[in-house]
Design a protein around this nucleic acid. Structure first.
Lengths: 334, 334
DNA sequence: ATGAAAGCGCTAACAT
DNA sequence: ATGTTAGCGCTTTCAT
């Protein structure tokens, strides 16, 4: 049972027209500042709007016209700053272009993503933004059938449905490995979170491992923490990994949250960085720039990704994949 | 100019009815599982829905009925984890109750909040969630006139419009001061971000200062960093404050991001914590539990706030203010 | 149990 | 420049 009463007393466009002594379409034109109307009509309409406290009903407007100006975000997680950054970037652009953002959270569950996309499509959004290219068949089918724009963000390694904005996770993994190798590290380990669900982290890890292997210094071992990434998992993960391999000289983390955890572990245990152990992360969070030793990591353009994705949507850009690249931050921990 | 074409080829309920050989209202009843229909009709409808790939149009549904099941979030910022936490808490509850979250970001600007609330109301949301009680007259007026539920979150010190869920920022500021005093600190400073815009941080600071003053150990000095809170500002802010007052024995930060920055400054400079300088934060972020010395801070129930706020909305609870309280974490930095 | 029909509040032709 | 009108795709009486 629920008590959703009709918005009581909500002023309608017809009432405004009545009050202003003009036709409904004139009110509509004035309010959307489209088509032609006299200066006088405009004044009378605006006065009536003001006096009655009229708030346009975009539900009705959308139904009557086309294009909801609603942009749906289906994000894996809001537990770290990555997706909020993307949302923030998009949000500014959308606001300026009079679009609205709708969101839901999949918790990295592709079945749930499918259900949420279905729910989103019921709102007839102008576009749907998803993380990455891995989706269920059902999701892909719905999206294709919907006719709305689709933007897949934060990855470029895969087949895009329509638009894609991001960077190469594979290249990032490879660049990280090459950097560590170049620095002379040879006994390298990995501490990560659930890479089956976070497929982008999985791609980085795969490329990282391949790069090490082909250089003749295969990954020594890895510690996969269950659940989402976190500073705490990173710290515990490194502790466990070092318990098994005290002789590692470098550790690659699935992201900066994990890496900061590892960094704290070293600080607490008096393990000197990077001489005793090097640490490398991913994301380039702000915090990594302010640690006593700046974190060696890869900085990703998350806000810019959100911005560009939103711009593509509001300008109805043709299908394309844009690789925004990333920046390897040498830092002082590796 | 924009190219929002009508959702081409979107299957309509009428087409489903046609294909199933039943009336439109029967389809509607079956899909909403309401009213009565035969087992047979149900099967035929579901078969047709499946075959045609029908996705209900909630825009039309909302216009025809009442209640959009849309919940609008107007948040100050997505730059740190605080509001994402609230959104995350709410998001789960809303999803289970078939509601949708819409959001926009004010950047702590009350004029912008007003504009965004106006834009939100055009979607006839079931409820609007805002941070705190400080709003423009225009915002308050619109909200009252809208007839939709309003939830003000993360504060309880003020006059609620309708529902409010949060905790007392004044009490938090006071508790922080009392804790530091109890620990014996007497030369206490403050490092904060823009407290005119972030009024909740302002309330904490005010209560903190008053508590110190009435204990006879007034605040020695404060350093206010312009812009949003960040780890980097915290570090710089502490550095500047210590330049002026090398003899401080404790510093209160506007939140944990800032405090962690201060913590890093001490680590980098070899200032021993807490013997030489104590540090106290606010929020109780996860990271503060994993630093070599756990951060002394106040842990706030952000996710729970989002959850309860969403529950109030979906159950259409009567107007009320709920203080979820906070937890003082003694930590090891003060 | 089911269908027909009247809106919901707008926008978009189409007249004038 | 402006009014009239026919929908947009549903939900909801109201008959039957």
């Amino acid at each position: 049972m629920d008590f959703d009463f009709k918005q009581q007393g909500a002023v309608t466009l017809a009432e405004v027209a009545e009050a202003a002594g003009v036709g409904e379409s004139t009110v509509s034109r004035v309010l959307r500042n489209e088509g032609s109307f006299s200066r006088k009509a405009r004044e009378r309409v605006l006065e009536a709007v003001e006096r009655l406290g009229y708030v346009p009903n975009r539900i009705a407007g959308t139904l009557a016209s086309a294009g909801s100006r609603l942009v749906a975000f289906v994000v894996p997680s809001l537990s770290n700053i990555v997706f909020p950054d993307v949302l923030r970037g998009a949000s500014g652009v959308l606001e300026q272009n009079r679009h609205q953002a709708v969101f839901s959270v999949t918790d990295y569950d592709l079945e749930r993503e499918e259900a949420l996309v279905a729910a989103m499509l019921a709102w007839r959004p102008t576009a749907v933004m998803l993380a990455g290219f891995e989706h269920t068949q059902g999701t892909l089918k719905m999206l294709r059938a919907s006719g709305c724009r689709v933007v897949e963000v934060l990855d470029v390694d895969g087949a895009a449905l329509d638009l894609a904005v991001g960077f190469s996770n594979r290249a990032a993994g490879q660049a990280s490995a090459e950097f560590l190798l170049k620095r002379g590290y040879r006994r390298i380990g990995y501490v990560g979170h659930d890479i089956d669900r976070d497929t982008r982290a999985g791609k980085r890890f795969a490329a990282f491992g391949e790069t090490l292997a082909s250089a003749g210094s295969p990954l020594v071992d890895r510690e996969i923490c269950s659940g989402a990434s976190s500073v705490e998992s990173g710290r515990l993960g490194l502790e466990r990994l070092l318990d098994r391999h005290a002789d590692l000289d470098a550790v690659y983390f699935s992201n900066d949250d994990m890496a900061i955890g590892g960094y704290f572990h070293c600080l607490a245990r008096g393990i000197s960085i990077p001489s005793q152990l090097a640490i490398f992360g991913y994301n380039g969070l702000d915090i990594g720039r302010v640690t006593p030793q700046p974190l060696s990591t890869i900085r990703t353009p998350r806000v810019a990704t959100g911005q560009l994705a939103a711009e593509f949507v509001v300008t109805n850009a043709p299908p394309q994949v844009v690789d925004l690249g990333f920046e390897l931050v040498e830092g002082a921990t590796a």
